[in-house]
Design a protein around this nucleic acid. Structure first.
Length: 306
DNA sequence: CAGTGTCAAGGTGGA
DNA sequence: TCCACCTTGACACTG
């Protein structure tokens, strides 16, 4: 079991998602920004390694406008060695990486232009992980997409569009239950039809349930991951107390997290904490999980060289 | 220079 | 048909 947090670290003093306005795009500006983002990503991963945080989601803003037509720069070539070094660090320390493009990726859209833009965005995400030479345990998570007044047809369209994707995307894609449209049960059905692994989001499952208990949900989603896919990835969070439904908590609810670990044992999984204070909660969760037999220490803590 | 309006992209539901 | 909301930081313009 590896524990992590998404995209942002508030302790290291930099962001790996710096960007700029499309209107001020230039290849120079892009290069400058990507260089800075990669430098920061390296710092974040080193921070994580020191703290036994072995799971991290790289934000989609690492290479701004990468899938936009305006971007024709060969960033993979320009930064091949930087990406390679980061990937080496990740592998060396037994870390796991995920990415999560945002709501604009809609595979099952009815408008073919939206599908095309979605595919371009997915190709970019896969290219980042490829540039780091990570195996297929590094994944890109998406939601099923829109309902368009006909969930059956829309789920079928997800299946047919999925089947048309390039291998470079297919080997990385996983589907996640969302908080209002497609439940875990829907995702499991899509898995049966397509073979896509299912990423289980605990919070979304509580907001948008489908009659499956959490322990069973973890077990059944876990079974959708093949040997080469790595173990189940989960997103964990709790609602913001007193906040509007759907909002994520400010900090880790230790008691609830402990309860989650207890009720899901012994299924192994990697846990992404979608909580606002990011690495702070991850540190707390690592402290709690150390008592769990599934929890994994960083690889080099086992090595004799200290 | 601080404050703040706005930012590539979509879907949904209410007015 | 149009707009706010989802959720979020931070860019970049305004005064």
């Amino acid at each position: 079991m590896k524990i992590g947090y998404p995209c942002i670290n508030r302790s290291v003093g930099c962001s790996c998602g710096r960007t700029f306005r499309l209107s001020s795009y230039s290849d120079e500006r892009l290069e400058e920004t990507v260089r800075e983002n990669l430098r920061c990503l390296d710092l974040i991963l080193r921070f994580n390694q020191r703290e036994s945080i072995l799971f991290f989601r790289i934000g989609s803003g690492l290479v701004p406008f990468a899938s936009h037509p305006v971007c024709t720069a060969a960033w993979q070539d320009t930064f091949a060695s930087e990406f390679g070094e980061i990937g080496r660090f990740v592998r060396e320390h037994g870390m796991r990486i995920s990415m999560h493009p945002d709501q604009f990726v809609v595979i099952n859209a009815k408008d073919p232009d939206i599908v095309d833009r979605s595919v371009a965005e997915l190709r970019y995400h896969a290219a980042v992980l490829d540039a780091m030479h990570l195996d297929r345990t590094a994944r890109v998570q998406i939601h099923v997409g829109g309902v368009y007044g006909d969930r059956e047809a829309s789920m079928e369209r997800f299946g047919s569009e999925y089947a048309r994707l390039d291998e470079s995307i297919l080997r990385r894609l996983v589907v996640e239950n969302d908080d209002s449209r497609y439940t875990l049960a829907d995702c499991l059905r899509i898995h049966e039809e397509t073979g896509i692994p299912v990423l289980f989001d605990v919070f979304h499952h509580r907001v948008n349930p489908s009659g499956i208990a959490v322990a069973e949900a973890v077990e059944r989603s876990g079974a959708t991951w093949g040997p080469e896919d790595g173990i189940l990835m989960t997103d964990y969070s709790t609602p913001m107390p007193g906040g509007r439904k759907g909002r994520h908590a400010e900090s880790l609810d230790g008691a609830d997290f402990e309860q989650f670990l207890a009720e899901t044992a012994p299924t192994d999984m990697d846990i992404m904490l979608e909580i606002k204070d990011k690495e702070k909660s991850a540190l707390a969760a690592v402290g709690i999980a150390r008592r769990d037999a599934r929890f994994l220490l960083p690889a080099d803590r086992y090595s004799p060289k200290e």
